[in-house]
């Protein structure tokens, strides 16, 4: 992983020309960094935790199909412990 140190209002640029993506540090607080991202409209910018939640939801939906509700009974004893 490339690690770059930046201060407030400094930026980095990824890629070149019309495909370039620019990430600017807009604001720093004790617990948060506010980033400004300029990217072509074809580039999708998503918070990573949202993608992770989406993947987990897909896995849960699939698992619920494969495990009939009555099968949960045996797991419930573990949950109730």
């Amino acid at each position: 992983m490339l690690v770059i140190r930046r201060k407030q209002n400094e930026a980095i640029r990824i890629g070149e020309g019309v495909e370039a993506i620019e990430v600017e540090v807009l604001e720093l607080t004790a617990t948060r960094v506010v980033l400004g991202i300029s990217a072509p409209s074809t580039v999708r910018v998503t918070r990573k935790e949202l993608l992770e939640a989406a993947a987990q939801n897909r896995a849960a939906a699939l698992s619920a199909k494969n495990f009939a509700p009555d099968k949960f009974s045996s797991y419930l004893t573990e949950i109730r412990r």
Partner: peptide, 16 residues
């Protein structure tokens, strides 16, 4: 918490 069951075990999504 949404529950996921797999062959490896049963998990709950406490993160989301």
């Amino acid at each position: 918490a949404i529950v996921t069951v797999s062959v490896d075990g049963i998990t709950a999504n406490l993160r989301a």
